[in-house]
Nucleic acid binder design. Structure first.
Lengths: 142, 142
DNA sequence: TCTATTTGTTAGATAAGTATAACAAATTAA
DNA sequence: TTAATTTGTTATACTTATCTAACAAATAGA
């Protein structure tokens, strides 16, 4: 399976997964609304993702993820969540920018970096007597 | 000044700056070699950057940065350096992947995140008795 | 100097992602 | 149950970034 999705296609897949979780059903229109693109663009993207076996989409029907698509979406989501956690909880960036950044970086971060960042956050959250948490807290007002 | 460069154009600009620092003169060919693209692609990119007033390039002559171009390149470079430092020195990722990741993330990181990450690294590097450095060192083998 | 090689340029061609516009299907409301 | 509105589809076109191929200029070697 030669996946290798473009950031754009990853975004579409992620959005489908999000809407599915949210509403159970996924409509072309809603994907477009979330991504700020026209329905025709969504259709084009869905065709691409269908060919790769990541989504199911019959003419005039709701969109759905395949199992493969679900797996990939889940993977992207986990990068997203981790980055958002790092940006908000560690770096203490609390405006929209943390979300914006997470949405961009998630598409270009290697698995290795995902792994190390996961461990780093975990490392900061453990530690005897919570000393690490204490100095993290002190960083917030740095 | 409506800048807003694409990641691709940022890469070209960055490469011109790098070659300039390295060799003083910048040739079309060398830009292509570094970015793994053909000279014709470099030419197209230089035309775009020229129109934006970021590089100077006369037919068959060497390429150079304008002052504006220099400023932007410098800004990108500082993001690159910071990210590389974080990935290698903090997360302890020492293979090519840290460089790869830095080269991608530098184009999508907000100024706010740059600022906070800068402060975070600085925070980790200071601290009474170097306790934070000690913790960091212990993380390396986590 | 004069040829050979390298470097630079230009004109198409291609691929990804987007938009507009015309139309078709489905849904909602009257 | 029609008519109006929303939603989905398709064809076509544009933009960005890339390539190949043909050619032009510059540089290096004999």
């Amino acid at each position: 399976m030669e996946k290798e999705l473009s950031p754009t296609m990853e975004d579409y897949l992620e959005t489908v997964a999000l809407l599915k979780k949210q509403n159970n059903i996924v409509r072309v229109r809603d994907i477009g609304r979330l991504l700020n693109v026209k329905s025709s663009s969504v259709n084009a993207a869905l065709k691409t993702l269908s060919k790769k076996g990541l989504v199911k989409h019959e003419r005039y029907e709701y969109v759905d993820l395949t199992l493969d698509g679900e797996k990939i979406a889940c993977n992207i989501q986990s990068k997203h969540d981790l980055l958002l956690k790092f940006l908000t909880e560690i770096l203490n960036i609390n405006d929209d920018e943390s979300l914006q950044d997470a949405c961009k970086i998630e598409h270009v971060m290697s698995p290795k970096t995902l792994d190390r960042l996961t461990k780093f956050i975990q490392f900061l959250e453990t530690g005897i007597d919570g000393e690490r948490q204490k100095w993290l807290k002190s960083f917030k007002y740095y």
